[in-house]
């Protein structure tokens, strides 16, 4: 079937079977491999994307459910010049990245949180990330990076 939606602010139109997941559509049909596949049961969050601004596990969403909606993947998160945005830069400067496999999902989850709660507490950040598993970092520096970004964005908007 024809699946048409907005992907990272661009309209896309792709012919794909109706019974595949949004994750498979992104990775196998649109060749966007930044979104990771790691459990396929909605537990690990490596496949996190934003669907109309909501954080979702793309492995649990049927591809046709994206029709007419806005999907943002890690490939859509960057600064105007195509480089890393402030959150991504903070992930780097706070040492929040190790093997990196969970990181696209973590960045998406961080952005999704900050759009809803501009000034989250560390505990609120921890709860917001609880659907994204990381086995490398113990989460400390990921929480640090999101907290620092929130503070910078608040400062900037004032």
């Amino acid at each position: 079937m024809l699946i048409e939606f907005t992907l990272n602010d661009q309209p896309v139109s792709v012919e794909a079977p109706a019974d595949i997941t949004l994750l498979a559509l992104l990775r196998d049909y649109l060749k966007l491999t930044g979104t990771k596949e790691a459990c396929e049961v909605g537990e690990c969050g490596a496949c996190s994307v934003m669907l109309d601004g909501e954080l979702v596990n793309s492995c649990l969403i049927a591809a046709p459910a994206a029709i007419g909606r806005r999907v943002v993947t890690i490939e859509g998160i960057h600064d105007a010049d195509g480089g890393p945005n402030d959150l991504q830069r903070n992930f780097l400067s706070h040492g929040a990245v190790q093997c990196g496999f969970c990181i696209p999902g973590m960045v998406i989850a961080g952005e999704a949180l900050l759009t809803k709660n501009a000034q989250p507490s560390r505990q609120e950040i921890r709860v917001a990330l609880a659907g994204n598993l990381c086995r490398c970092t113990g989460y400390m520096q990921i929480v640090d990076a999101i907290e620092a970004t929130a503070n910078e964005r608040i400062k900037k908007s004032n």
Partner: peptide, 8 residues
């Protein structure tokens, strides 16, 4: 390698 990782 961190930059490529945060950009996906």
């Amino acid at each position: 390698g961190g930059l490529e990782k945060v950009m996906g």
